[in-house]
Structures are given as C-alpha cells and as structure tokens.
Simulated assay, not measured.
Amino acid sequence: MRAAAPLVHNITNFVVMTPTANALLAAGAAPAMLHAPEEVAEFAAIASALVVNIGTLTAAARDAMVLAVRAARDAGRPWVLDPVAGGVTAFRRETVAQLLCEGPAVVRGNASEIIAASIGASAGRGVDAANGVDEAAVHADALARRIGATVVVSGPVDYITDGTRAVEVANGVEMMTRITGTGCTCTALIGAFLGAGLPGLEAATAAMVLMGVAGEVAAQGNPGPGTFAVRLTDALAALRPKDLDQRGRYALRLTGTLAA
C-alpha cells in the first residue's frame, strides 16, 4: 500500500475527518475529503478508492454518497461502506439499504451496525455496539453472500467474512474504544488497501491488523487517551510489513468451521 500511495476519496463524518486524514497520510495513502454533490462523482471516478461513512448523515450527504458510489462503480473503482449507527433511525436504515444495493467491496461496522445492515431493522444505540461479535458473525456471513462483498465486524476480536472464508483478528487494545474515530479509521485504511489493489478480504484483514498492531504499540506505557491518539498516528507511520508479520494475530476459517 505504501508503494502504491493510493488516492482515497472520503465522504466521511465531520467528527473524524482530521484524524482519518492524518491516519491515511501516516500509513502512506493520499486522503481527499470531498463532499459536495457538485463534484463527488467526477472525483470518485479518478480516485483509487472511495470510502463512504454515514456518521453525520444529511439528505445532501446521502445524495452525494449515491452520486459518488455510482461514479466509482462505473469507473471500476472499489468502495467501502461504514454504516455508522445504521440501525438507529429510519433515515439511516433507509440510507444503508440503498447504499448496500450499489455494490460496495467491503462493509465495516460494529456488531450492532452489521446486524442492522443485514436484517434491515433497528439495532444498537448510536455508535456503540449493543451486541457481541459472535452474535453478529452469522449476520455478517449472510450479508456478505447476499451482496457479494466482504463484511467486517469490529470488536475485541474482529470478524471478517466474504461469506465463504472468514478471518478473526485479535490485535488491538481497549484504549482504542476511548478515543473517537478508530473504527472510522479502520474503514479508511480498508479503502487504502483496496485502492492499492488488494481484494476485499485481504484488504480488510490488512487494515484491521495494521490498526490493531498500531494500537498495541501506541498503548505501551499506559498513556492517557489524548497521548494515545497522537501515538496511534505515530505508530501507523512507523510500522512496516515485518512488524505486522511478527505481531499480527489472525486466523483464517471457513465460515462455520476451522480451516487453519
């Protein structure tokens, strides 16, 4: 991904725009934060990948998202969906359902967000997960098969599935839940790996391992959340493939059975 330096177009929420851009830069990608409906389609067609995050959703933002994902799809560019709080309100549920029909390569959310996306019903309480990863796994498998995408359930052990194969990633630390935007950053990093040419399952696994290991490095010495956030960006910049080879904790499975 560092060699490719992919241009990642982010239509993301206003709360995480700066940390997301900083994380992409630190990891070796080039971020762009274009949201205007008047220009998103043109830019999505030339970017390496598109990231759509519905955290601060508005009607205008939804229009821009639809325009961008259709342009990305027509241009053969992969895109990733983050259905933030997607099961909480009717507006969000309708938006997620619409976007799922537009062919995302990857969908990443917490357990409640993925359950809501899969069944099209209310789940969760805002951005917090009210369900466990194990509970969401079967829904993630079903959603992946239905839309032909990779689905990521973030949690203490992340679950990544394409409906046939699944990967569990055990990297990360609890402090990552104490600062805003770590999940959104994972989504953006998935976009970066997609933009570098990796298939969905491999891109998602690479991003979740990278973010989890960066969290572990940043947490050394038990810093407070403010210091941890800065160290997380530093860790993303410093990590190299050999570090992920040494520290990555992940296992490949066939859905429902242990494969390796």
Rank of each mutant, 00 (worst) to 15 (best):
M1Q: 09
M1W: 08
A4Y: 00
P6W: 07
L7K: 04
V8Q: 01
I11F: 02
T12R: 02
V15F: 04
V15W: 08
V16Q: 05
T18G: 03
A23T: 09
A27D: 06
G28S: 07
A29S: 15
L34S: 14
H35T: 15
H35I: 14
A36C: 11
A36M: 10
P37H: 13
A41L: 07
A49E: 03
A49W: 01
V52P: 03
N53L: 02
A59P: 00
A59T: 15
A60E: 15
A60I: 15
A61P: 00
R62C: 08
R70D: 08
A71W: 03
A72F: 00
R73I: 05
A75R: 03
R77G: 04
P78T: 10
V80F: 04
L81S: 08
A85K: 06
G86D: 05
T89H: 01
A90S: 15
A90I: 09
F91M: 15
R92N: 06
R93P: 04
T95L: 01
T95C: 04
V96K: 02
A97T: 09
L99D: 04
P104I: 05
A111P: 05
A111L: 10
S112P: 09
I115L: 14
A116C: 10
A117E: 03
G124L: 09
R125T: 14
G126T: 08
V127G: 08
A130I: 12
G132T: 14
A136H: 04
A137L: 00
A142H: 13
L143F: 05
R146N: 12
R146T: 14
I147H: 10
I147V: 15
G148I: 06
T150N: 01
V151F: 01
G155V: 08
I160G: 03
D162I: 05
T164M: 10
R165H: 14
A166C: 08
V167E: 07
N171G: 12
I179R: 05
T182Q: 06
T182W: 02
G183I: 02
C186R: 09
C186Q: 13
T187Y: 07
I190S: 04
A192W: 01
F193C: 13
L194W: 03
L194Q: 11
A196V: 07
G197N: 07
G197F: 08
L198H: 14
L201E: 04
E202L: 13
T205S: 13
T205W: 06
A206Q: 15
A207M: 10
M211F: 12
A214L: 12
G215Q: 02
G215W: 05
G215L: 05
E216D: 13
E216R: 12
A218R: 05
Q220F: 00
G221M: 11
G221D: 12
G224I: 08
P225I: 06
P225F: 13
F228H: 07
D234S: 14
R240G: 13
D243F: 04
D243S: 06
L244A: 08
Q246W: 00
G248N: 07
G248K: 05
G248D: 06
R249K: 12
Y250W: 15
Y250G: 00
A251G: 09
L252I: 13
R253D: 13
L254K: 14
L254E: 15
T257V: 15
T257R: 14
L258C: 10
A259G: 00
